[in-house]
Structures are given as structure tokens and as C-alpha cells.
Amino acid sequence: MRPATGEQYELDFGDLSATITQVGAGIRSLRFAESDLTEPYGVHEQPPSACGIVLVPWPNRVADGRWELDGEPRQLDLTEPAKRNAIHGLLRRRPYELVDRTDSTVTQSATIFPEPGYPFLLETSVTHELHTDGLQVTHAIVNAGDRPAPVAVGAHPYLRIADVTPEQLTVTVAARSRFEVDARSNVVAQLPVEGTDFDLSAGRRVSDLDLDTGFADLPDGPVEHVLAADDGRRVVLWGDDAFRYVQVFTHRSFATKPGGVALAIQPMTAPANALNSGTGLRWLEPGETWTVSWGIRPEGFGGEAYLASWG
């Protein structure tokens, strides 16, 4: 039986290993030695709750799947029918084509063809690379059409630390504001987090949180979000200057332990409903290429032996 997510690209570098999928260009597993750094799922499963996939040409939701282009209404397919939204872009269930691979790297590409809701032609690629600093994911988007195109990039990893239940971990997100949403998870306001239960800047126990929340106003420069265990092990999700937004999701119906929590920390270059608000959108000119990177770095999993494994 073929895997539900197409070809499986097994990567290795020292004690790091990963399985990258053809469908959605997703992370099916990421491990340091015997320790899971992301929530894994089975080879014959579809990605549970978008686990590990690439989100392009927009992350998160477009309310009602509707937006306007030059004053003309556009209607996207409603891929979150229960809430009547278009969610997570146009490539989440599409197979990518292999471009190049080595023992520690795989590059895949996918074309976004024009459609009524998104009438643009984009050539996209994503490279997953294991190296001395963990996993680096690099996205490149080329506007292959003849008109400027609005684009944004995101990803949907669920982080963990080996066999420590996520409820026992501490998450730190240095954001100064968050997006309030309605019952359909659509943005209605942007509010400061200082002095509220949404302030994660000093670290909060995952067991105390119930979030599906977008955050903004991150510190200048490359940003880091941290998931930490009490024994000093940490998983750091970092993004370059383009990733000015992040979604934190405490998912209680997808978890390794029934009834537990799976924690998604989703780097995004634009927040929910960006096609309507314009917030964070990058308008690519015809022929222009946009390249952005984010990654996952384990810390404290082996001390000097961790670095020596690549020495």
C-alpha cells in the first residue's frame, strides 16, 4: 500500500533524522536520537489537523473565502466548511515534485495555477535541510505570471520533547499583541497581551492554556519561540525577519496520548485574513522571487556530545 502522503524522504545528519512527505511537503517526523521534536504520525495516515504541512499562498483563514482584487470580489473554495472559511492556502493536499535530494536535504516544488479565487501563477519550492543547528526550512516563491501577486507563507508543526507530555512543558512566545476572533475563528480585533492570560512572554505551562490564537508585534530581528522541559531540554522554533506572526494552538483532539494536548507553533509571514486586511502580505512583481526561512533547533539534548556528533 502506498503511503497516504506520497513519497517519504528520509533525512539524516548526525543524531538528527526527519521524514518529509511529498503531499503538502510536510514534516511527518523530526527526531534527535530517540527523542521526537515534533508530533509524528503514521505512514498510512493523512496529516492530522494539518500536522507539519506548508501553508501557501496564505496561512490560516480567509473569512468566508471571500476577498477583493482591484475592487472585484473573489471566491476561494471553502476548505473549512464547518466554519465557512478558506484555510491554509492551496497546496496542503497536493503532491510536490522532487527537485533535488541528498542524505540530509530534500527540495520539492509545486506550481500554483490561476483559479477564480486566486488568479495568479506561482512557482513554489521548499527545502528541508538538517545541519548542525537542527532543521532549516527554506521557501522560495516566484511570480511566474504577468501581474503582481499577493503571497504569504506559513507552516504547521506540532512541537514536542520526547516522551514528556506537552501539558508538562512550558511555552514562551515573545509577542506584544494577539488577534481576537469570533466563533468561526475569524479575526475581529487586535489587542495587547500585557496583563492578560494571553501573555506568553515569560513562559506559561501548556496545561494552563487553551489557545487557537494568532500573535503579532514580535521583537525586531529574527524571532524565537521556545518549548521547554523542566530538565533543561528545549525545542526552539525560529523564523527570519519575514516571520512576524505566529499561531499557537493547543489541540485536544490530536495528541499522542488520548485526552492530551498537541501543541502547534505555526510561523507565519502574515496573519489570518491577510488577503482582506493586507497585513503582512508580500506583493510579488512578475518575475520576482521571494525567499524566506524558518527552522527547529533542539537544545540541551546531549550537551557536548550533541555538537560532537557533527564534529
Rank of each mutant, 00 (worst) to 15 (best):
T5M: 13
Q8F: 01
Y9N: 12
E10Y: 02
D12R: 15
T19G: 13
I20N: 05
A25S: 15
S29Y: 00
S35E: 10
P47H: 02
P48L: 04
A50V: 12
G52V: 03
V54G: 00
L55S: 00
P59H: 09
G71E: 10
L98A: 05
T107L: 11
Q108V: 14
E115M: 14
Y118I: 11
V126I: 15
H139T: 05
I141N: 00
P148S: 14
V151Q: 04
P157K: 03
L159F: 00
R160C: 09
R160W: 00
V171I: 06
A183C: 10
V188M: 08
P192M: 10
V193H: 06
D199I: 05
D210G: 09
D212L: 14
D212K: 07
A216F: 06
D217N: 08
L218C: 09
D220A: 15
V223F: 02
L227E: 06
D231G: 03
G239D: 01
D240A: 01
R244V: 05
F249S: 08
A255L: 03
A270W: 04
P271K: 09
L275H: 01
T279D: 06
V292Q: 06
S293F: 08
G295A: 06
E299G: 11
G300T: 07
E304D: 14
Y306D: 07
